[in-house]
């Protein structure tokens, strides 16, 4: 590690607030976007499963 102590790492000279807020905001935005993507995919997959089940049920009823 470049810094001598954990406090020094958090403080980053006088620039801690800038560095950490930049990283925090960035990660927040990136993670939020990824989560919404994953959710959309999962939701769509569940819809397809439901449609399949309905199709299967309809097929069995027809028999």
């Amino acid at each position: 590690m470049y810094f001598e102590s954990f406090e020094a790492f958090l403080q980053m000279g006088r620039h801690g607030a800038y560095v950490w807020s930049a990283y925090g905001l960035s990660l927040l935005l990136i993670v939020a976007s990824l989560v919404s993507a994953v959710r959309a995919e999962r939701g769509a997959r569940q819809t397809v499963r439901r449609l399949r089940q309905r199709a299967n049920n309809a097929g069995e009823n027809a028999k």
């Binding site: 976007s33 959309a40 769509a44 397809v48 499963r49 399949r52």
Partner: peptide, 26 residues
């Protein structure tokens, strides 16, 4: 790339939800 793949999958799932191959795939 991950985000693009995931969103593209969501889009495929939405568009092709009625096609047989996809229903067998999920």
């Amino acid at each position: 790339a991950v985000s693009v793949l995931v969103r593209a999958r969501a889009e495929i799932l939405r568009r092709e939800r009625k096609s047989r191959w996809l229903q067998e795939e999920v």
